[in-house]
């Protein structure tokens, strides 16, 4: 693995499988009376959050703490950052405090990339969501969830059909998922109104459709993306009602899914908007599971980046096959 996790594209197939397999092992820790491993004792993980995201932050915090790392939460609100301190000075401060890893959530696309490549700090940088760019650990936990539900927790997602519906244009979750799922061999279809698809999406390793109903019957998993409130008044679509009618997942649409198919959402949800309440609460929904799995996956990422003298070395596919 690379030293940082900035983009899902940083992960080779072997890297991704290593993370998922490791997470699968670590998931058992949560079932034990003592949910803690000594592995990262003495290591410092900083959660550097320039955007509010309680669920992502506590997920990383739980992951780091279960590995016995010291966790420092650095929230931009009410800190020196809100007084105009630059990312650079913040990074230099964290370096001076001896951060072994910085988990960064930032509103600007590319901020984690800049942090990792600037030379401002030596530790590993883990992207916990940057602007409308990427959110690689979310994609990993989504893939982990799909693999558990669809593949018995093993192997890749070769040939699995995944439909991702909603605001792809502004979604870091969609970007990371498309990249990772393609790496794992899945067939991804993005469904959105044309206004919420980025220019150039035809070059992505996926299919694109404007019609949710034509994709559901052959989907193994359907992932609903959150529609941000601020999009609703910017003419990306006429009304909430129309969006919900054309792109929302209601019970009728859920019934069109194959028997085994699962319904996913990265949260937080707009119930009644992109997903009907009954769908979100149905047994097919993995929404709560995704949260649980997030901790295991983030433990795996932190362990593989920080657990050794350097990030985990992945064997190549050919060596793998030779065994």
């Amino acid at each position: 693995m690379k030293r940082h996790l900035i983009s899902a594209a940083d992960l080779t197939r072997d890297d991704a499988l290593l993370v998922l397999d490791t997470a699968e092992e670590l998931a058992h820790i949560a079932e034990r009376p003592i949910k803690k491993l000594p592995t990262l004792r003495g290591r410092t993980v900083v959660n550097l959050f320039f955007e509010d995201s309680t669920r992502t932050r506590i997920s990383f915090e739980a992951a780091a703490k279960r590995l016995s790392a010291d966790v420092i939460n650095f929230s931009a609100k009410g800190s020196s950052v809100s007084k105009g301190e630059t990312l650079k000075d913040t990074a230099l401060t964290l370096q001076a405090m001896g951060a072994d890893a910085v988990v960064i959530r930032h509103g600007a696309s590319g901020a984690p990339h800049t942090l990792a490549n600037s030379g401002w700090l030596r530790g590993s940088v883990v992207n916990a969501g940057d602007g409308t760019h990427e959110h690689p650990t979310q994609a990993l936990l989504d893939a982990f969830t799909m693999r558990r539900r669809l593949n018995d927790g093993k192997g890749d997602l070769e040939g699995r059909r995944i439909t991702i519906v909603g605001d792809v244009l502004h979604s870091r979750v969609a970007r990371s998922n498309v990249l990772l799922l393609a790496t794992l061999g899945a067939e991804v279809t993005l469904v959105a109104p044309p206004t919420l698809l980025p220019i150039g999406v035809e070059t992505w390793p996926c299919q694109v459709s404007y019609d949710i109903d034509s994709t559901l019957a052959k989907s193994d998993a359907v992932m609903m993306l959150r529609v941000q409130r601020e999009r609703m008044n910017a003419s990306y679509f006429p009304t909430e009602r129309e969006y919900s009618r054309r792109y929302g997942l209601d019970e009728k649409r859920m019934a069109a899914l194959p028997e085994h198919a699962i319904v996913m959402h990265p949260g937080p949800m707009n119930r009644g908007m992109e997903i009907a309440a009954n769908v979100a609460d149905s047994p097919r929904s993995t929404i709560v599971e995704q949260v649980t799995n997030g901790v295991s996956v983030r433990m795996a990422v932190l362990y593989l980046l920080l657990g050794g003298s350097e990030p985990a070395v992945t064997t190549t596919a050919t060596e793998e096959n030779a065994k």
């Binding site: 290593l18 397999d21 490791t22 092992e25 670590l26 058992h28 491993l37 000594p38 592995t39 590995l67 362990y303 593989l304 980046l305 920080l306 657990g307 050794g308 003298s309 350097e310 990030p311 985990a312 070395v313």
Partner: peptide, 20 residues
């Protein structure tokens, strides 16, 4: 699997876990 409890973790790259 004792990987996560090793005392030499920091001497080598992080390694894959075995099943417990």
């Amino acid at each position: 699997d004792i990987t996560m409890y090793r005392d030499d973790l920091r001497l080598r790259p992080a390694r894959a876990l075995e099943r417990t």
